[in-house]
Amino acid sequence: MELYKSRILFNVLILGFILSLITYIASEFTYGTPERVAIDFGLGLTNLSILGISIFMGVTLISQEIESRTVYMILSRPVSRFSFLLGRILGMSGIFLINIAILGCLSCFYYILLGGTFSSLLVWTLFFMFLEAGIMLVVVILLSLISNTIITVIFSITIYVGSHAIAPALGTSFVKMRPGIGSLLNTYAFIFPDFSKLNIKNFVIYQQALDSKLLISSLGYGFFYFSLLVIIASYIFKHKNLD
């Protein structure tokens, strides 16, 4: 239903067309490594599109149901609040999956077409993108349950940027020389999601190998964080007054 409402397929097709066009232009103007440009751009666009969906559709996913009171029609039936919340999250995850499947496959197709070699890391990258979008979605839902739309969007974007910047920031000599800032950033990384753990795009682009243990631990981290957020969000939603 959410898929139908959002007309997401239409948007994905437009993005797919843009991806094809830019990949073609890039391959014409890039000397030496057109496949890297193609996969870099393709994965970037895929990531950006599902991030946009998770933030801008996620912010109204539950709050709009409460404001428009459609939630009364559902929760007056034998449906628990947890099931309702989980259903909405799974519905949106379906949208992410379709988005990733279409744009991701298109990116891989152009990558291989332009001379790149298929690697299992490509699948991992796409899966981690999916996981990251899922985490962001629950972050947005959680914030929307305790705040208004504008603050939720601002905070969500801030958390997303911060969560990607935390690992590179910790690696800078500026932070290394200042243990106070370092521990502050580590505290941030402990509380907020650390998306650098799920970002393996560069390994694909530069065709580097990645230890499977690292992949498994990142996967575990992603699932754990996602589940934790779902539990917190469902607790808040369970105790929220729907008036």
């Binding site: 239903m1 409402k5 428009s68 009171r69 459609t70 009364y72 029609m73 007056s76 039936r77 034998p78 449906v79 628990s80």
Partner: peptide, 19 residues
């Protein structure tokens, strides 16, 4: 429990809202 009770209950809110 609530699940069983709501299976036997029909509710219409004031100004019902729909998709």
């Amino acid at each position: 429990n609530q699940r069983e009770i709501f299976s036997n209950l029909g509710y219409l809110p004031e100004r019902p809202y729909f998709y």
